[in-house]
Amino acid sequence: MCVEQARLLLLLLTASGWRCVSGIRVFTAGDVKAVNGTDVRLKCTFQTSAAVRASSVTVSWSFRPLGPGHEETVFYYHEKPFAPPEGRFRRKVDWAGDISGRDASVVLRRVPFSFNGTFSCQVKNPPDVHGNVGEVRLQVVSSASLSEILVLCVTIGGAVLLVLLLVMIVASLRRCQRPRNPEPDLQNDLFSC
């Protein structure tokens, strides 16, 4: 009898529109490097089983510094972006997300070394309010690493060599196609008058 009651209850809940809600899943880049004084995008995307409506989704970004210090609010979004009115992130963070595209990213402007630390992205979309918090560990460096510079040089050098090789091939083909000693065709010249 208990099995039949459980089935009936499940059938009634399903018919009433009730459904199981799984937790929201948040995805971030993990480790990110940025050169001091440049802008950097902190990517945060999410998956939810509930319908995404701009009026229901909230996004919270917070920051925990590497050294001593307390956690700070970086950014908040609910129907529109709310940048912090004071603190180290005042006028330093802009909304770069798109809720309908399940994107909750932000851009940090002109990052200083004091931004070294962990940024956390939390997204809620009721009834999906439980789930993981995405983290981005930002490392602000004084200049691009040697490997990044090397990759850039190899890429540019390879492109230049490719263009030079193509020009040499085209020039060689044109030179080979030209007649070497064109002899005047006297017969055709006589009849052309």
Rank of each mutant, 00 (worst) to 15 (best):
E79A: 09
F82M: 13
A144I: 04
T73L: 15
T58G: 03
L42W: 06
L11A: 13
L150M: 00
L66I: 02
I149P: 01
R90E: 08
F82W: 11
Q177C: 11
R137C: 11
E183D: 10
S49R: 07
V141M: 07
R53Q: 12
R178K: 12
L10N: 14
R180M: 03
G117I: 12
D39N: 15
S55M: 13
A104F: 00
S143V: 04
W95A: 00
L108W: 04
A96E: 03
F27S: 01
D189S: 08
G67D: 14
G87W: 13
G157A: 01
F27N: 02
V151N: 05
R137A: 14
A144K: 12
R41P: 07
F75H: 12
V129A: 08
G117K: 14
V106W: 02
D31L: 15
G134H: 07
L12F: 11
V57G: 05
L138A: 09
L161Q: 00
T48I: 07
V35P: 01
I24Y: 03
I149R: 04
V170G: 06
V136P: 04
A50T: 12
V160G: 01
E135F: 13
S55Y: 10
L138V: 07
F27Q: 03
S172R: 13
L10D: 14
V21Q: 14
R53C: 07
Q122L: 14
S120D: 05
Q47P: 05
N116C: 14
S120F: 05
L190E: 08
S147R: 02
T58C: 04
W18L: 14
V136G: 02
A29M: 01
L173N: 10
L9C: 09
V106P: 06
L8V: 04
F89E: 12
E135V: 11
G117M: 13
I99E: 06
F75N: 08
I169N: 02
R7N: 10
G131D: 06
